[in-house]
Simulated assay, not measured.
Amino acid sequence: MTAVREPIRTFDDALAALPAGFPADADAAARHYRRLARLLHPDTAPPGRTDQATAAFARLSAAWQARSADLPVLTSPHHSYVLGPAIATGDLAELRTAHHRRAGEHREAVLKIPLRPRDNDLMSHEAAVLTRLGTVGEPRHRAYAPTLLESFRDRSADGTERVINVLAPLAGFHTLAQVAAAHPGGLDPRDAAWMWRRLLAALGWIHRACLVHGAVFPEHVLIHPELHGLVLLDWCYATATGTHLPVLVDRHRDSYPPEVHDRGPATAATDIHLAALCMRQLMGDQAPPPLRAFVRGCTLPRPGARPQDAWRLLAELDAVLDRLYGRRTFRPFTMPTAPAV
């Protein structure tokens, strides 16, 4: 089967592409399937074309089921996950798209697979932290962390065992690293403001659960431009308030505050320091003097001199923003559109 070369953007494009089959490459095949499934799903069909979409989606599902026999599969006690392309590779793990069948439909998921078996304990630790976070605070705050669907052990043919965390997919999100790359001259502080506010709210929720995230870096903070949503990723580094961080991210070693390097206890002030650095890097030279001063207050060397309460700090940030920009209003934000493939 050959890949479709023309861009697929609409329902009619997807219908036209459906007979062409899937590319030979496994990752390309999975991307092609996801694109068609999104456009052909009956729930998103154009008005009056639901029946046509239902038939096309069934045809696509049958073709994909046959194609999936050639793709790698990981099996948990509950599901068999057909692996798709990698989303990202971090210091500890690779994130891969996957799907499984449930109630006759293909369900999407993201599998977090450790790069080395020695990091299995950190994967199990992340699963325990996410499970705990799913039970604390108000339900609306739980959206600040990924949803853990399950965690299981997979044993490969050579006997190597890996702990794999299965997460609910997040559509339409971008990391702060991607936002910064799209704005090399620095992000307008009026846009950075809502991201900062969401980040402090997320930290307030985490700290009330007596946890420290410990790795608030740009690639671990996801934002949704249209919905002004935010999710914190990578909970392998989290720890109980007052204990030391279990592991450091080597490439960000210089960003950690002094108490981390001294093997002292991590507290809310540790996360606040890292979050403030994220926002300083994001705004660059665009940050006005009051916001630069605000960052300096959040990154003082002595943890006891830094803010200790993210909720209270959010109120202080609102006061600074109000003096700078007036009454808060919704400010639309968009990311550059990637070329169609």
Rank of each mutant, 00 (worst) to 15 (best):
A30C: 13
L149I: 01
F333D: 01
G264Y: 03
D234S: 10
P19F: 11
G242P: 14
R292C: 11
D158S: 08
P85S: 12
H141M: 05
R312E: 14
A30Q: 12
D27P: 04
T329N: 12
R328G: 03
Q52H: 08
D154A: 15
A63G: 10
E94Y: 04
T160K: 03
D91A: 15
T10G: 06
L111T: 03
P258T: 02
R312L: 14
L324G: 09
L277D: 01
A293V: 00
N120E: 00
D322A: 10
A201K: 14
A287Q: 03
H78L: 12
T160S: 06
A86P: 01
V247R: 15
A319R: 03
D262N: 12
G326S: 01
R153Y: 00
A168S: 10
G214L: 09
A266L: 11
G48L: 07
H99R: 15
T50A: 09
R140Q: 05
L211S: 02
H141G: 10
E108H: 09
D285A: 15
D234Q: 10
R35H: 12
R292P: 14
W64E: 07
A338I: 05
R31A: 14
D25S: 01
T337A: 15
G134V: 04
M1Q: 08
L130T: 02
P307R: 06
E226P: 01
L321F: 08
H141I: 00
S156R: 15
G229R: 11
H183C: 00
A93V: 02
F152Y: 11
R96Y: 00
Y81Q: 04
V179N: 01
A240F: 11
G304P: 08
L111C: 05
E150G: 07
V216C: 13
A24L: 12
L92P: 01
I272K: 04
H99E: 13
L39G: 11
D25R: 07
H106S: 08
D318A: 14
P339V: 05
H100A: 11
A268S: 15
V82T: 15
A98T: 02
T44I: 00
G229A: 13
V110A: 04
L314T: 10
P218Q: 00
P77A: 01
G204Y: 07
L324H: 09
V73T: 14
L199S: 11
H79D: 07
H99T: 13
V179H: 01
W194K: 03
E105C: 05
H32P: 02
T334Q: 14
L200D: 03
A240M: 09
V82H: 15
D191P: 00
A127E: 06
C236R: 12
G229T: 10
L321R: 04
A201M: 06
R101E: 09
F173V: 07
D250M: 13
H244V: 06
A128K: 13
P72M: 01
R302G: 12
V231T: 11
R38W: 09
T75W: 02
W64L: 08
R312H: 14
L39K: 13
A193G: 02
E108A: 14
A69Q: 13
T89L: 10
A269Y: 06
R162G: 04
E316T: 10
L317W: 06
I87Y: 03
R118P: 00
